[in-house]
Design a protein around this nucleic acid. Structure first.
Lengths: 146, 146
DNA sequence: CATTATTGACAACTCTATTGTCAATAGTTA
DNA sequence: TAACTATTGACAATAGAGTTGTCAATAATG
């Protein structure tokens, strides 16, 4: 546990941070009646993106079926709407409705505040390095690992 | 999605990275027949820690009941064993068995290789900054947020 | 000694996500 | 154009990590 190793710690911290963030996020989303996974889907469509379910799945790097469930739920809630897809007749494009946009703006505003507070003690330069490091790790993981 | 904002991106990357790491970790653990959550518990006991279930839960920041399930499963598998707890008669101390230690060494060896490869393109200085940044975020989240 | 707290065991549930399957219909190619 | 293949949406079953709640037993403590 008490490894001095930075690399190892970063991995461990990622897990911890993920859980802590997820919890926070859930709290914040609760009164809006949407889940973190639904929120993530909305993010891909914000503010005016039009994507089919399989396209969202690809970007989200999550199974098509999972995205479908989230999208259907958001359609039911009136936060998303379907539009004709010129590229595929059976697979409509999904976009935020006005209500959806409104809600996502609310979410974003809340998030911004929380994020600002969260990062208040981290220098901009360190943020950038951290971001690049994490990007590099993700890239390495996705680069056809063996 | 395409925020230039480093802070926001770090949060997003944390999620993505977590999922990618979890997947990798699961793969690596599969043939050993233990789950990531069980592995995490083992980590707290490695190499010679003796902790009660509630103590592990506290360090792991996870519910006592959840840890109990993981510990019971590892006890059944012969990877952990109980020892008398001088501080509490009904709550034994849990420790790795020899088999448990052996298995965890295997896990660690594998991990070390993977981690080394994963971080091969990240400078030591950047690792440190990243680690400190993530630590700072976690601290901020746990610091009796409001 | 009486009271309160802790523990282990069990259950029910949530959330995110996966895999598999199916029928319908779209693209594509011979 | 007809035949074939791929994609899509819908549905189901499953898994993993974790939570909350409850209960009885037993510890610790005033």
């Amino acid at each position: 546990m008490r490894e001095g190793d930075n690399a190892y710690q970063i991995i461990w911290l990622t897990r911890r941070l993920f859980r802590a963030l997820a919890q926070k996020s859930d709290e914040s989303l609760q009164d809006l009646g949407i889940s973190a996974a639904e929120r993530a889907v909305m993010e891909f469509l914000h503010p005016d993106e039009r994507l089919s379910v399989p396209e969202i799945a690809e970007r989200y790097q999550v199974s098509r079926q999972h995205v479908q469930v989230m999208v259907n739920s958001l359609l039911d809630a009136g936060l998303l709407a379907t539009h004709k897809n010129p590229r595929h007749k059976r697979s409509p494009l999904i976009a935020l409705t006005e209500r959806g946009k409104g809600m996502f703006r609310t979410i974003k505003t809340r998030d911004s505040k929380a994020v600002r507070k969260l990062f208040s003690k981290v220098a901009e330069k360190d943020r950038q390095i951290t971001r690049k490091t994490l990007e590099s790790l993700l890239e390495e993981l996705n680069s056809h690992d063996h």
